[in-house]
Computed example of a mutant assay.
Amino acid sequence: MGQTLLGGLLRAGRDPASVLVVDRRAGRARELHERFGVRVVAAGVGAGAGEGVAAVRSADTVVVAVKPQDIAELLDALAPHLRDDVLLVSLAAGVTTAAVEARLRPGTAVVRVMPNTPSLVDEGMAGLAGGSSVSDEDLATAEQLMRSCGRAVVLPEKHLDAVTALSGSGPAYVFYVVEAMVEAGVLLGLPRATATELVVQTVVGAGAMLRETGQHPTVLREQVTSPAGTTAAALRQLDDSGVRAALVSAVEAAWARSRQLSGD
């Protein structure tokens, strides 16, 4: 996700010379420099951090894009080198702003972000929540950062588990349905490549209709559903199979798991 955000920033017009990437793997750092033209520093964390991590002392915004289990050690290494007025944006899933703030200088501005994988194609959706010391300007900066690879919404942190369940995990639900529809097409005799093309474009088109028309999904669904027609027959089967209830339960399960991981 860090590389995705980096690519989005540069496509949005950010000067590569203004971006510093710190990566614990020297080979990876060289790869990012060669691909994006940004400044890079290879640095470990903890006892192996050395002066590499100290390179962040000049940054006014620091984005932490690591796995949740790695963030505590990284923050401990970063903390002595961060500016007093720095904005720290955390992409670590399930790690609360309070947990991040506890390892930094009191008063450090922290914004927690829950992005999703369509950010890879600049169609991401991110939820942002500010910590106890963020200003409106800090939130606006973080929001602009995430909008470089999609859309973003700012909301209270108590809602980020729901964001995780809906948009964070949401692409997987869509891919799951696409898989099933493609398999149905193959079952009905279509070549797999043709079935895939039909389903993928249908999903893309349906999503575009939702966004561009602004109409409620119920209205759009009813426009496709003729009385006693093929769509009506399919929808009746979905209702009889409890698909709607299963989707609601699935999102609720993801929400519950997110709360568990964040310690709520």
Rank of each mutant, 00 (worst) to 15 (best):
D15P: 12
G50S: 09
V86P: 07
T117W: 07
R192Y: 01
A250K: 11
A142C: 05
C149W: 05
A228V: 13
V177L: 13
D23V: 04
A184S: 11
T97Q: 01
Y176K: 10
T61R: 10
L104R: 11
P191E: 02
A59D: 13
V95L: 12
T196S: 10
G48H: 06
A253T: 14
P171G: 00
K67N: 12
F36N: 00
L128N: 11
V200A: 11
R221W: 11
G124S: 06
T231G: 04
V95E: 04
A26C: 03
A254M: 05
L104V: 11
V251T: 04
T230W: 07
Q215V: 01
T108I: 09
G46F: 05
L75E: 00
R14T: 04
A47H: 14
G13F: 13
P68V: 00
M125V: 13
Q201K: 14
Q3D: 02
V19C: 04
L198D: 04
I71P: 09
G207Y: 06
M181P: 02
R28Q: 12
G189H: 11
D70A: 03
T164M: 00
G8H: 01
M146L: 15
P156K: 08
A79F: 09
A180I: 03
A102T: 07
E222P: 00
K158W: 11
V113E: 11
L20A: 15
G50F: 02
M146S: 08
R192F: 05
S135Y: 00
V186N: 06
S133G: 10
S258L: 01
R147L: 13
S169K: 10
E34N: 06
T96E: 07
R244Y: 10
I71W: 05
G242H: 13
L20C: 09
T218V: 12
V134P: 15
R25C: 08
E252N: 07
M1E: 01
A47G: 13
D15Y: 14
V204I: 14
E197K: 05
V153R: 14
R83G: 12
E73C: 00
G189D: 06
